[in-house]
Design a protein around this nucleic acid. Structure first.
Lengths: 127, 127
DNA sequence: TCCTTTAATGCAAATCGTTTGCATTAAGAT
DNA sequence: ATCTTAATGCAAACGATTTGCATTAAAGGA
């Protein structure tokens, strides 16, 4: 294994993902950094893949065909995506723990991971 | 609205998706049809998009970056994907109904749809 | 049945997010 | 300060899907 160097871009990317507080796309990160200094998109992708492999961030492909990244704080969370304002709301408790247990008991399928995409309309946008 | 014609390819595609009994990709369908008669991939995509818009089939983008199609029988189901044999197991009852209600009550977010991707190891492959 | 209309198709090129090869630059260990 | 090699920029490639355009073939009416 080669050692990961602490490049400026790498820490910039981490900072931006942290600040975002929502899953954020490569292009978004690219734009954020580019407003400060010039970077190449492929650099962003390489950094993101490295961060993903090292479990620093979690990568999820959403139904819009774009990968979104968020900090991996080792808690299992899900997001609610508002289809009107496109904001994402974090929810802390995962509703599927018991379900996964019951599936294990019923049909002996061992669920090791799950990805959910919730869509709907947030409180504000319902007005 | 223009009227959809009952082309041979269209009904072939529907048949193949039905027979598959698993979510199936455009390329899979393409190969199936091509073993019988010559078709163009873009034709398959056009048929699939038409079927999706007419709610005849349901389209889901999975984490592998490929769209999978299954017949829409208007029941809400989910699939368990075995990461070893890559088979898909259908599960009939959705575990998220109560959860969605509780979210509505707690934070007044109105969940209109959700997509789940369960991964794990099936009964057979655990041996 | 033959005509007419227009949806369906084939083909090639375009799209879009992401990845890769290669030459250059710069971390960070010695 | 020097050396090794990870990080970067740039352009080209990638793979799934879409699109433009010319051609073919359903399906309704004469």
């Amino acid at each position: 294994m080669s050692k990961t160097r602490n490049s400026k871009n790498r820490s910039l990317v981490i900072d931006i993902i942290k600040k975002a507080e929502q899953p954020i796309s490569a292009e978004n990160i690219f734009n954020s950094i580019n407003s400060i200094k010039k970077v190449n998109l492929s650099t962003i992708y390489r950094i993101l893949n490295s961060l993903t492999n090292q479990n620093v961030v979690i990568k999820q492909l959403k139904q819009d065909g774009i990968h979104y990244y968020e900090i991996n704080d080792n808690t299992h969370k899900h997001n609610l995506i508002c289809d009107r304002c496109h904001k994402t709301i974090k929810i802390e408790n995962c509703p599927l723990k018991e379900f996964e247990n019951s599936i294990k008991q019923k049909i002996n399928f061992d669920i090791t991971s799950h990805i959910i995409e919730f869509h709907g309309i947030c409180k504000n946008c319902q007005k």
